[in-house]
């Protein structure tokens, strides 16, 4: 992570010199993620592809005006989010992603199935575990099979959660970058991330528990 800014600077200098290899590298680095983010915002594959195209054109147009006040990728994804909400408006779908994300974050959804905890009336330990979570074997998560369970779990998440966990955990972005790129609050970002991780953990626990004799 510490080299992000240095990497940005040399890349940016190459872009300002119009080195097409730098541009191609930039596109290859972000295109797939941009499609996934746009799809989560629009729920329409061809609209997502168009919005990503529009974003690349806007990047070409605006690259010399980029002032480095955010990271390059945050700037690109902000353009993407802007283009996606403009597209939603043009299509008469007036609910922007940021509103969906706050609605998702506001819904009450416990991180762990409440039946795993003792009831409020328990005399000794109300709201403590009925039975302790198990220790997962250290190397259990290295198996290729587990990898596809994790991928499947991420795919099943609601849009807002899926985008946030993809940027934070799969891509390693900082919380601030995610908020800026998606135009969501830091609190909502964290709630969505926590829900998403909790759900993936639950699915892994079922899988690892179920795989035991």
């Amino acid at each position: 992570m510490d080299s992000v800014l240095d990497g940005d600077e040399s890349l940016l200098a190459a872009l300002r010199r119009r080195e097409d290899t730098a541009f191609v590298a930039l596109v290859r680095r972000h295109h797939s993620l941009m499609l996934r983010v746009a799809y989560a915002q629009l729920n329409d594959k061809s609209a997502a592809e168009e919005v990503v195209q529009e974003t690349w054109l806007a990047v070409i147009k605006g690259i010399d005006a980029f002032e480095g006040r955010s990271t390059l990728r945050t700037w690109i994804f902000r353009i993407l989010t802007y283009q996606a909400s403009a597209r939603l408006q043009r299509d008469g779908r007036l609910i922007p992603f940021s509103a969906l994300a706050s609605a998702d974050a506001a819904a009450a959804e416990p991180s762990v199935d409440p039946s795993r905890f003792l009831s409020r009336d328990d005399r000794r330990l109300p709201f403590y575990w009925v039975s302790d979570p198990m220790q997962w074997p250290e190397d259990a998560l290295l198996a290729a099979e587990v990898r596809s369970v994790v991928e499947g779990a991420v795919q099943q998440l609601p849009d807002g959660q899926r985008v946030v966990i993809t940027l934070r955990d799969l891509e390693g972005w900082d919380p601030g970058e995610v908020c800026e790129a998606l135009e969501i609050s830091e609190g909502n970002q964290r709630v969505l991330l926590h829900r998403a991780r909790s759900r993936v953990r639950e699915i892994l626990d079922e899988y690892l528990g179920g795989a035991r004799p």
């Binding site: 290859r28 797939s32 993620l33 996934r36 990898r147 991928e151």
Partner: peptide, 12 residues
Amino acid sequence: ALQSAPAETAEP
């Protein structure tokens, strides 16, 4: 486990 998922690449 999430962090070790391979990055997808695509190009237009």
